[in-house]
């Protein structure tokens, strides 16, 4: 699979003779607006738990959380084509503790978004005659593979009990992420700031409750990139060495 990927990229090099390869990392924050089904699921677990522990409470209810995106792109004039992979995670937690021990019941939802990306540098803003900022837009279709893991942890003075649910449930969701942002370059390093909205379609867990998984919502991020020297530049350097 890896070899095929490398082959495809190598074959496309002649068509993009002046293209440059760049790697990019974006740390971001995801606002998840469609977590209703998962909030219902943890509430169902709370109703079961309070039969035994009447004072147990939900202390985390699938909040917004950080995202991490890594991208590999071909930069060609004002356009970028590439792949990106994003890791997202959130969770719910029921907790109780007193002098004798502590109890936690966790549902952790993790996801990997794998997508392609097209970015276009729309407008350049110049300050003091120098290009300083570029406004860009991008579109990224992709798939999100989510995994829900359930675990119970109990800690007492004399023992610790850990229970992991045997059934870890997965779902696949289709996603379309349009974003706009600004970027600036310092030599081969670039810094960017972007925001967008992740639109999603489908995605239900096969867990008996048919829990809908959706990471839909606002995305913001700040990141950096490094653009590797183009082939042409290396040739020039060699020519200079010969002289």
């Amino acid at each position: 699979m890896k070899n095929r990927f490398i082959l495809v990229v190598l074959l496309s090099i002649p068509t993009l003779a002046s293209a440059q390869l760049s790697v990019e990392y974006t740390g971001g924050y995801g606002a998840y607006t469609q977590m209703g089904d998962l909030r219902k699921l943890i509430d169902t677990k709370l109703q079961t738990t309070i039969l035994e522990l009447p004072n147990a409470k939900i202390v985390a209810n699938f909040p917004n959380y950080f995202t991490h995106t890594f991208g590999l792109n071909y930069v060609y004039k004002r356009e970028e084509f590439g792949f990106q992979i994003t890791r997202m995670s959130t969770g719910g937690k029921i907790a109780y503790s007193d002098y004798s021990g502590k109890y936690t019941n966790k549902l952790i939802l993790s996801a990997v978004r794998i997508g392609t990306r097209y970015r276009y540098d729309y407008i350049d803003f110049t300050v003091k005659g120098k290009q300083n900022l570029t406004l860009f837009w991008e579109l990224s279709p992709g798939v999100i593979v989510s995994n829900l893991k359930h675990s119970i942890y109990e800690e007492y003075a004399t023992q610790t009990v850990t229970e992991d649910d045997d059934g870890n449930y997965s779902s696949v969701t289709f996603s379309l992420l349009p974003q706009i942002g600004v970027k600036t370059n310092y030599g081969r390093f670039g810094f960017h700031l972007l925001a967008g909205y992740d639109l999603e379609f489908g995605g239900k867990l096969d867990n008996g409750y048919k829990t809908r998984i959706s990471w839909m919502g606002l995305r913001t991020g700040i990141g950096f990139s490094y653009t590797f020297p183009p082939r042409k530049e290396k040739k020039k350097e060699k020519d200079e060495d010969k002289d």
């Binding site: 490398i6 990229v9 190598l10 390869l21 790697v23 990392y25 004072n55 147990a56 409470k57 202390v59 985390a60 959380y65 950080f66 995202t67 991490h68 890594f70 590999l72 992979i85 890791r87 995670s89 959130t90 969770g91 937690k93 907790a95 109780y96 503790s97 007193d98 502590k102 936690t104 952790i108 939802l109 993790s110 990997v112 590797f228």
Partner: peptide, 29 residues
């Protein structure tokens, strides 16, 4: 290209391992 691939894999591995949601809140009675 190779550098890019290796760097990308290393960074990807790091953030994949490190970014799972966690919450240390509890209720104490």
């Amino acid at each position: 290209f190779n550098k890019a691939i290796y760097s990308s894999l290393s960074v990807a591995m790091l953030f994949f391992i490190s970014c799972q949601y966690d919450n240390n809140s509890t209720v104490y009675y």
